[in-house]
Write a protein that binds this DNA or RNA. Sequence first.
DNA 1: CGCGGGTTTGAATGAGTTCAATCACGGTGG
DNA 2: CCACCGTGATTGAACTCATTCAAACCCGCG
Lengths: 250, 250
Amino acid sequence: MLPMIERLQRFSQLDRADLDALKRLPHRIRETSAHEEIIATGQKLDRVFIVESGWLIRSRLLDDGRRQILNFMLPGDCFDLQCLVRARADHTVTSATLARLRMISASEFLDCVRDNANLATAFWWAAVQEESILREQIVRLGRRTARERIAHMMLELIRRRRLATAGTANDELLKLPVTREMIADALGLSEVHVSRTTSFLRQAGLLDVSNGTAKVLDLKGLMRLADFDETYLHVDEKFRLPGREHAESA
Amino acid sequence: MLPMIERLQRFSQLDRADLDALKRLPHRIRETSAHEEIIATGQKLDRVFIVESGWLIRSRLLDDGRRQILNFMLPGDCFDLQCLVRARADHTVTSATLARLRMISASEFLDCVRDNANLATAFWWAAVQEESILREQIVRLGRRTARERIAHMMLELIRRRRLATAGTANDELLKLPVTREMIADALGLSEVHVSRTTSFLRQAGLLDVSNGTAKVLDLKGLMRLADFDETYLHVDEKFRLPGREHAESA
DNA sequence: CGCGGGTTTGAATGAGTTCAATCACGGTGG
DNA sequence: CCACCGTGATTGAACTCATTCAAACCCGCG
């Protein structure tokens, strides 16, 4: 629960009562081992998940075995707000590591945010950010080279982690509990080429991805290579619901 | 307005009163010519847009001129519900053609859906579908070949149009008011390769993209090539808000 | 008739894939 | 303590899909 609260608080004004309401929400905890299926394609969604620890991956499988990882879900992330209209899952969610998940029933979650505008705003923000991350993933895949993709994704992951850890984490070093194959499936590359590209980045003195970690060697250089611009993460924005007054301009 | 209503009604139970509430919402109409910028990067979002006619594109521009089109917005689509938390745009929206847009202020829109669960559900559904389309775009870019990408996107566009036209449109023929360059920027390809690939598809007797239209020559073959599975469009689902009863299974 | 936007074609190049072999590392069992 | 195994990472060589650059083409329009 803590990483989620950390994250939400950074963007919305949540007071003691809001946090209590959130913590008191009836829920169940699920502890998974690595590589467990959490949500299967076609399944009807009826609960919200909050990642308390561990990494999850959201992916789509093509019939001939090709796989595309849509995004990684880190501690503090929540999904799927789609359950609020009882949609069916069109993709799979799997644990990448041991993970601890908090599950809240859709109806109880809905009742809660209906009564609490601050929480509603906070979760809406989380959804806005998640969608934004998907869009950036599109840009990465469509218009960036392998080097840029890897550099860009690592910077995103580091930045996202910071949001959920109150800035206590070391921004130079990211625990990266995923195989080359997962990186490849996330970035639309082959395992082999991920290997070649990471070793290029290491030799270039920019980034060292090895032993389950990513170590930033040259932040400026890496950001330049990746053309990294974090505005899509909406980190500097304070969200609020619109007031009654009208918009300022056409 | 009509395409939007057509689309919403297909997925949610909207009665006369709901439709009236929607139609009566204060709004302004904007008529654009082709290639106008509707929303600029960094702009604060304070209104919901509904496409009444014409096509729009949502895109991100990299600093060296590369462009990625995130998706196409067709008549009946609505965006950006992100305005409900006053987020800033992290991308650009441009008209691809003459277009007619209905704009509703965020606060009035919010008041309306707060009071009307049916409309709230309907728009939530639209958001779920839009996000799903983004995810499919990720799969296309990450794990499909050029041929598959083009075939897949055309099938999606045809299917989406059907949702907004009460099935009166001809599913074999799609008006495609976009240049090769836009197709290329949407699919992460070069203009040249789009040209080569469409001419391959034409010679293969599958799909004829020319003169601003896409004509399906062999639907089955095209769907096989594209590995097209429309469940991600959620067309067969009836959405509703969750009741108070609990979920059926763990 | 010539101009311009968009499209197509050709040839050379390049980024990334594929397949297969090798390596590194951490068990596990003898 | 070491041989054996399995998983994941790396390397090399051949290949392929897509890009780049440049030229030609098409067609509607002034």
